[in-house]
Design a protein around this nucleic acid. Sequence first.
DNA 1: AACGAAACCTACCGCTCTACAGGTAATGCG
DNA 2: CGCATTACCTGTAGAGCGGTAGGTTTCGTT
Lengths: 192, 192
Amino acid sequence: MSYGDAMNARVRSAERRSEIVRAALEVIAERGYRGASLGAVAERVGLTQQGLLHYFPTKDALLVAVLEERDQWDAVPNPQWRVDLLASLVEYNAMRPAIIQTFSALLGESVTEGHPARDYFAERYTRVRSGMAAVLRAEYGDRLPNGLTPERTAPLLVAVMDGLQYQWLLDPESVDMPGAFRDFLTLLGEEG
Amino acid sequence: MSYGDAMNARVRSAERRSEIVRAALEVIAERGYRGASLGAVAERVGLTQQGLLHYFPTKDALLVAVLEERDQWDAVPNPQWRVDLLASLVEYNAMRPAIIQTFSALLGESVTEGHPARDYFAERYTRVRSGMAAVLRAEYGDRLPNGLTPERTAPLLVAVMDGLQYQWLLDPESVDMPGAFRDFLTLLGEEG
DNA sequence: AACGAAACCTACCGCTCTACAGGTAATGCG
DNA sequence: CGCATTACCTGTAGAGCGGTAGGTTTCGTT
């Protein structure tokens, strides 16, 4: 059982860490990253602020863990995807406002100077754009309306997804995010 | 000269205030609203933090002034506008990254709970969407592709503008914001 | 049972922030 | 000139922040 017990300890530790990350997601959603305090996150998991620093030695380290969590959870698009899977993704997002709020808040902050998530978002956009271009090419070939290429359309697709999220977060009753996204897809679907 | 002198005093005061607002715009662009300190703004206009509070009694009052400044400067779309004016607006924006950065950072923060700019952005979106719908109707009538109405297309137009700004701010060399926006407009221009 | 490491805690440091209180010098008006 | 207002300043209160130092308890391993 010795090995098993060792695993248990490691597993408990890993569970604690992901508990903390989940709490951090919530607090960031409510107050942004700069506005989030380690104390508030710690309180939510029944720790003192210093107890939390045992798991993540700095506030930035906690943010890194939050961003890594996202990378696992929210995969970058790949050519296997079809565009109706994108629509489902947006529908899925509409059921998880807290997560969307977290990353919309982080994205907004990230454009400020020296923000610790800036590089993350910049690189992520690069990956997501090229992934989206591949999805578009797999779906439509190069037959996009008006001679648009997948590479030129991908930034628009990404912009629509992000931009709709802000409108929806600020006024969910007035903005039908999944519907609007499907509307956008129909613009791409017609023969060019 | 008595009346004129009185005016001079009032004018000087108003100039000082707008100097402060301009500095606040810069600091918010660099650090966001929550990250911006009154001291940093004050320093930029050669005042102490307490001297700045003589003009704006609280930090929130300064933010309100910043948002009002924007309302004057960046008018809500009206039906007189044509869509190529929108394209010019995006081109103009691309020449003023600092302003875009300020309001992109504020928009991101505004989705967090109890943020003082939240109502402002929510109401602004409502106005802008209906303004955009009017612009679209004036330009295309109801002949938008795939039976889309101007009201359903307006949120997409707004989303593209906002979403492109984030991609562009994070990676200006990879994202041709005005070009991408024009690409989007061509999607609307073809017969449906 | 003994030991080392992991998982916390209390105490505290130094800094930054908004805002209030109260003073003073300059300015413009009657 | 005298007075009120404006335009600042210094001083400080009061709170919150991230992070360090160092202790103690719990726990798995040997």
